[in-house]
């Protein structure tokens, strides 16, 4: 019994490390087009990876359903862009032309996390 619980505990640790770090890096989530409506709800942006064209201005569409103040702003720290999101209504966020690469976007507190894939 003791051995079983210890093994279970170790398996849990391995599972946490694998799920939250290793598998995430190995297989990033599917990339959605820039025209998608990004839902802001339950602590996640959905879709969370958005593909935008390189060297082109882009408009993203956010639909915030989480009324908590955590979700009020979306911040693109690398681009110096942020926007206040209306509750229950679509908010457009205009982004400048970008070089190829990945740019994170988050809420103010960095609890909501998403990634712009510029390619």
């Amino acid at each position: 019994m003791n051995l079983l619980i210890n093994l279970l505990g170790l398996a849990l640790i391995v599972g946490i490390v694998w799920w939250f770090w290793l598998s995430k890096r190995a297989a990033p989530a599917a990339v959605a087009p820039a025209a998608s409506v990004i839902m802001v709800k339950d602590g996640v942006y959905e879709p969370e990876r958005i593909q935008v064209p390189v060297h082109e201005e882009t408009t993203l569409h956010f639909l915030r359903e989480d009324p908590s103040p955590c979700a009020e702003y979306v911040v693109f720290a690398d681009l110096d862009v942020n926007a206040q999101l209306a509750v229950g209504e679509e908010t457009e966020v205009k982004l400048p032309a970008m070089e190829a690469g990945e740019y994170p976007f988050t809420c103010q507190m960095q609890m909501y996390r998403g990634t712009l894939v510029v390619a």
Binding site: W19, S23, D42, G43
Partner: peptide, 10 residues
């Protein structure tokens, strides 16, 4: 929230 975050490896 926890379940959605989990599905996204967060």
């Amino acid at each position: 929230g926890a379940w959605k975050a989990f599905r996204h490896h967060n």
